[in-house]
């Protein structure tokens, strides 16, 4: 592989040995993660697993205490303008300035992004049924999410980052969000990173996933490979047993007597 400077890196996100401590709590432990360019990457984990903390590092909102973070080959803390101008971001709490009217918010945001596409923004506004004269504070939860999504999409970012985009939303708005993810990768070959605890959504749209738990990556792989390598087997033994032998790659087993269910992750290569 040839190196043609930072931007030629095949990975759009490269996190190495990242650790983060908040007062008495270790939020990220020696976490490494690579997100390749193109496609949809799903970051899955429960509340407090470290998803948002990791994302805040990618956006340069937190500085790595240990380890390194590179987005487009750049350090987001050292080069915030170069990184953030190419990212579209929707935060979990969808924080938007409440006092503004939507039309003012769009004008205001547009000024930050040279690549802002007014035609696309207007198309999204119509699709999302957003009234430009409405004040942000009087938007419903769903309309607020759509407004945030519009802002994240309208400059056609190379990397779209969505933190729990569907949480607390009705199915109609969730549909818009999934549709935007698919459109982003299908029409333009861009990269989407989204975190979620709604695993059926992740299963629908992600090419790759990482499972994050208590600040560590437990597993990261292509979705297809994860699906193909995990199996449930129901085994019948000749004799009744309380302690059937383990299988290689076994994650769990339950049962009694002669019938036991095994959950397996194939056979570990390491």
């Amino acid at each position: 592989m040839t190196e043609k400077g930072a931007n030629a890196s095949p990975a759009i996100i490269e996190v190495q040995h990242l650790s983060r401590r908040f007062d008495d709590r270790q939020a990220l432990h020696d976490l490494s993660l690579t997100v390749p360019r193109g496609g949809v990457f799903g970051l899955i984990g429960g509340n407090g697993a470290g998803k948002t903390t990791l994302i805040r590092h990618l956006l340069g909102m937190l500085k790595a205490q240990q380890g390194s973070v590179r987005v487009f080959g750049l350090d987001p803390v050292a080069a915030p303008a170069a990184v953030l101008g190419r990212i579209g971001y929707l935060s979990e709490d969808r924080d938007l300035p409440n006092w503004m009217r939507l039309q003012d918010l769009l004008r205001y945001t547009q000024a930050f992004y040279p690549a802002w596409d007014s035609v696309y923004a207007e198309e999204l506004r119509k699709n999302f049924d957003l009234n430009p004269a409405t004040r942000v504070k009087s938007l419903s939860r769903g309309q607020r999410a759509r407004a945030g999504l519009l802002i994240a999409l309208a400059h056609r970012p190379e990397l779209l980052v969505l933190d729990e985009p569907s949480s607390g939303l009705d199915p109609v708005v969730r549909r818009d969000i999934l549709g935007s993810i698919i459109r982003t990768v299908a029409d333009e070959g861009r990269t989407v990173l989204f975190s979620s605890h709604l695993l059926d959504e992740v299963e629908r749209v992600a090419d790759r996933v990482a499972i994050i738990h208590e600040g560590r990556i437990l597993l990261t792989s292509e979705m297809e490979q994860i699906r193909e390598s995990h199996r449930r087997l129901v085994l019948q033994f000749r004799k009744s047993t309380n302690d059937p032998p383990p299988l290689d790659g076994m994650l769990d087993r339950t049962g009694s007597g002669t019938e036991w269910t095994y959950w397996c992750a194939g056979i570990s290569n390491s």
């Binding site: 999934l178 698919i182 299908a186 749209v205 992600a206």
Partner: peptide, 18 residues
Amino acid sequence: PIRTLAQSLLINPNTVAR
């Protein structure tokens, strides 16, 4: 087309391609 089916089913285009 792959893109159209992916959009309407809300699934990854690579899944349709596969």
